[in-house]
Simulated scan of single mutants.
Amino acid sequence: MKTKFALFLILQLAMISCSSTISTTKKEYTLNYSKELKSDWTINSKEWILKNDTLTGNGSLSPWGVLVSKKQLPENYEIDLSVNMTKESLFEIMLNLDKEKYIRTYLYQIDQNIVIGDGVYDKKDDSYGKRGGKTLFKKPMELENNKWYAVKIKVLNNQLYFSVNDKTTLEYSLEKSNLNQKGKLGFITNGEVKITNLRIKSI
């Protein structure tokens, strides 16, 4: 009996570790070690590093600093993180990246807004029109450099909820604007950004 239970447990762990999604119903994904960054994400080490539980990205107007997961997001998920835009104006979370299209959720300091948009991402081309995209919905929020913000994203039944500091919130239907309903996760910066407390959970 003990042997059967042990085999069952090993099989379950193997299924979780080999899962094609970045998290499963039995596991929350957190980023704590540099080896996880290398194994779970497609990175340019000049643009993104993980040190002391802090993920730091460096980019410019061209090229942006981009980090993309190797695994799919679950169908329904929550993402929590703390972010600090230490230089420049843009921090973007790419949701459901698939076939060069994704959902843009971002903090934009120049316009002082948080934004949901329809994005395109060509990993081989930094030129205008090949990355980024149109704004669908935005809400004013005072944003500063060198200040930490708590970001929460939830996708449930094709409804997207995007909030910052639990006080400024956007909601949008993925179906209404024909936005991707599956895909990978990514991050973009046009300067320097620091991310801590990243947690991805199936719901």
Score class of each variant (00 low, 15 high):
Lys182Met: 11
Gly191Ile: 07
Phe162Thr: 04
Thr169Trp: 07
Lys182His: 13
Lys167Phe: 08
Ser173Trp: 03
Tyr172Asp: 01
Leu174Lys: 00
Ser173Asn: 11
Ser177Leu: 03
Thr189Cys: 03
Asn190Ser: 13
Val164Ser: 06
Asn197Cys: 07
Thr169Leu: 15
Asn178Tyr: 03
Phe162His: 03
Thr196Ile: 13
Lys167Glu: 15
Lys194Phe: 03
Gln181Ala: 06
Lys167Met: 11
Thr168Val: 14
Tyr172His: 12
Glu175Ile: 07
Thr168Ser: 12
Glu175Cys: 00
Glu175Asp: 14
Asp166Gln: 08
Phe162Gln: 05
Asn197Trp: 10
Arg199Leu: 14
Lys184Phe: 08
Thr189Pro: 03
Gly186Phe: 12
Leu174Met: 09
Asn180Trp: 08
Glu171Gly: 07
Lys184Asp: 09
Ile188Cys: 07
Lys194Ala: 15
Asn178Ile: 01
Leu185Glu: 11
Gly186Thr: 05
Gly186Ala: 06
Arg199Val: 13
Val164Phe: 02
Glu171Trp: 00
Glu192Tyr: 04
Leu185His: 10
Phe187Gly: 07
Gly191Ala: 11
Phe187Ser: 07
Asn165Arg: 00
Gly186His: 10
Gly186Lys: 06
Asn180Gln: 14
Gly191Phe: 01
Phe187Leu: 01
Leu179Ala: 09
Thr168Cys: 08
Asn165Glu: 11
Arg199Glu: 03
Asn197His: 12
Leu198Asp: 03
Gly183Asn: 10
Lys182Glu: 15
Asn178His: 10
Asn178Leu: 04
Ile195Cys: 02
Glu192Asn: 12
Ile188Asp: 15
Leu185Gly: 04
Lys184Cys: 01
Ser173Ala: 09
Asp166Lys: 02
Ser173Gln: 09
Thr189Leu: 00
Thr169Cys: 10
Arg199Ala: 12
Asn178Arg: 01
Lys176Cys: 05
Gly191Gln: 10
Gly191Asp: 07
Ile188Glu: 09
Asn180Met: 11
Asn180Ser: 12
Asn165Trp: 03
Leu174Pro: 06
Gly183Met: 11
